[in-house]
Design a binder for these strands. Structure first.
Lengths: 162, 162
DNA sequence: TTGAAAAGTTCTATGATTAGACTTATCATT
DNA sequence: AATGATAAGTCTAATCATAGAACTTTTCAA
C-alpha cells in the first residue's frame, strides 16, 4: 500500500523527509554534492535501478531540491543540479556522516569524511548551541510551537512529558 | 522487492541511513527524543501501522539506536529508550528540522522548533565550519578517503570532478 | 552510414507497507 | 475471584514499491 504521507505533519522534520523521499534521496544528494550530475552517473555510483532513479529524481525536482536541464554541449544528456534549497541540505548529510562515521565503523574508523578542500583537514564536528554559543544537550532542549501553530498543536506541546 | 542495502557502501551517510531505516525511523526518533517511550505512544503520535512500528523498532534496537526493556512498574508495558548513539542522532533531526522549517512552510513560518528549555529561545542554526571556526561553504569542501579506505575507494576520490 | 552513448520506459517477480481484526498477558475494578 | 480494560504485539489481505533486465528513442562520433 502507498506509504503514508509525512507531509501533513506540522513538523519541519516530517516535511524535510517528505521532500527528500527516502534513503535513495539522501544518497542521490550526496553524489550531486560531490560532482555527479548525469543520470548514468547516479546509476553507476549508486547501483540504483534506473526506474527507481527516474522516480526519485522526479520527486527531488518536484520538491525544488534539484533542477533538470538539457546539457547545452550534448543533446543526449540531461544535467541534474542542486538548487539553493538542495545545497543547504548538506548540513543534514554532514550530520549523518559524522554520526555514521562515529558509530558504524568500529575501531577501523571511517573510510571517508568531508574535509576542507584547501587544508584537507576534516570539517569540525557539528555542535548544537544556544544563541549565545553555549553548547546544549538533548535534555536541555524542548519542542516549542511557533506563531503559526494551530491551537491543537499547542495543546500537544503542553502535554509533552519529561 | 527487498530494498537494496546501503550498508556495503563505504560511507558514513549510507551506514547511518541503513541503521535508521527510513522516514519512519526518523519520526520514531523524534518522538523518542521528546518523551515517547511506549509502543502505543508511537502509534498514537505517528499514526504508524502497528506491524510497521514493530518492525521499525526491532531494527532500531538491532542497530543499537534504541533499547527495549520491560517497564518495572507495569508488566504489560515495554519501554523503548534511546541509547547514547540514538541520542546523538538529534543533531541530524535538528538539521532536518532547520531545513524543513526554512524551506517547507512558505511565509507562514514553522509551526514548531527546538528551543532551549530554560530560555525558550530557538536553538541556533547549525553552521559547518573549519577546525579554526571559519564557516565553510559546500564548494570549499570535498570528500576525502580515511586511513582505512581501500585502494579502490581512493581511486574513486581521486577521480572526483570539480 | 553505422555504431555507440545517454536517458529514460516497460516488463515481471517479489518483497514491503497498510489497515484492521485478532491474540495474549497483565492490570484495575467490582 | 470474576470482569473488563490496557498494552503490546501478531495475523491476514490487498495494494504498492523495488529490483533487475530488456527495450526504445534520440543524439553524437567515426
Amino acid at each position: 500500500m502507498r506509504r503514508k504521507s509525512f507531509d501533513d505533519q506540522a513538523c519541519g522534520i516530517a516535511r524535510a523527509l517528505e521532500a527528500i523521499g527516502d534513503g535513495w534521496g539522501f544518497l542521490i544528494l550526496r553524489e550531486a554534492m560531490f560532482g555527479v550530475d548525469a543520470f548514468d552517473g547516479f546509476v553507476e555510483r549508486l547501483g540504483i535501478p534506473r526506474n527507481t532513479l527516474a522516480a526519485k529524481l522526479e520527486g527531488l525536482v518536484a520538491h525544488g531540491i534539484m533542477v533538470k536541464e538539457p546539457d547545452p554541449e550534448d543533446g543526449r544528456r540531461s544535467r541534474y543540479a542542486l538548487t539553493q534549497a538542495g545545497e543547504e541540505l548538506w548540513v543534514v548529510l554532514l550530520a549523518l556522516q559524522q554520526w555514521g562515521n562515529k558509530w558504524r565503523f568500529g575501531k577501523k574508523g571511517a573510510p571517508s569524511f568531508m574535509a576542507d578542500r584547501a587544508t584537507r583537514r576534516a570539517v569540525s564536528t557539528l555542535v548544537v548551541q544556544d544563541k549565545d554559543g553555549t553548547p546544549l544537550d538533548l535534555d536541555e532542549v524542548t519542542m516549542i510551537p511557533g506563531p503559526s501553530a494551530p491551537a491543537a498543536l499547542k495543546r500537544i506541546f503542553d502535554a509533552l512529558p519529561e
